[in-house]
Amino acid sequence: MFSVINLMVRRDILLAMRRPQDVMTSLFFFIIVVSLFPLGVSPEMEILRTIGPGVIWVAALLATMLSLGRLFSADHQDGTLEQMILSPQPLALMVLSKCVAHWLLTGIPLVILTPLLGLLLGLAGDEIQTLTLTLLLGTPVLILIGSIGAALTLGVRGGGVLLSLLILPLFVPVLIFGTGAVSSMNAGMGVEAHFSLLGAFLVLSLLLTPWASAAALKISME
C-alpha cells in the first residue's frame, strides 16, 4: 500500500518539477490577491491587521481552488487516468496519493509564504504563528474536499467555474475555523478548540473523500 503511495507521489512531483510554472502560477496568484487588499481596502495598518488572517485564508482558499483543476486533468488528457482505474490497485488509494502530492506541491508553498504575507499585512508574531499552523492543517482538507469537485467536473464544459461553484460552499467550515483561531487567540480564548476541529476535519476528509473522489472519477470516465 505504501509503495503505491510512494510511487504515485514521486511520479506526480517529478512531473510537476518538469513543468514548474504550473505550480508557480497559483503561488503568484496567492501573493497578488493578498497584495490587492491594501490597495483596495486601505493601507491603514490597523485595518489590515484586523482583516489580515481572513484575507490570507481566502486568498489561500482561492489559490488552492484554482490549482485543483490540474489535479486530474493532465492524467485525463493523456489517458493515464484510464490505466489507473483499470489497475488492480484501489483507485481511492491513488486519489489519496495524488492529493498528497498536490498538497506537497501547492499546499506547502502556500504555508511557507504565509509568514511573509502576514508581515506585509502587519500581523504580530504569535498571530502569524497561529495562522500558519491553521493553514498547515487546513490546506490538505481543502485539497481533499476539492478533489471530489475536480473529479466530478472532469471534462465538463465550463469545468473551472463550475468547480468553484461546487466546492466553495463546502470550504466554509474550514475557512471559519482557520480564521477563527486567530481571532479567538486575540480574544484570549485559546486556540485548542479550533485546532482540534481542523484536525477532525482533516481526519474525516482523509477517511471519506478519497472514496467519493474515486467514485466521481469512475462516473466521469464512463
Partner: peptide, 17 residues
C-alpha cells in the same frame, strides 16, 4: 450519477456547515 454523488456529499456536509 455525478449530481447524485454531489447531493450525497452535500447532505453529509450540511450539518457540518
Amino acid at each position: 450519477k455525478a449530481s447524485g454523488l454531489l447531493a450525497l456529499v452535500g447532505v453529509v456536509n450540511v450539518p457540518i456547515i
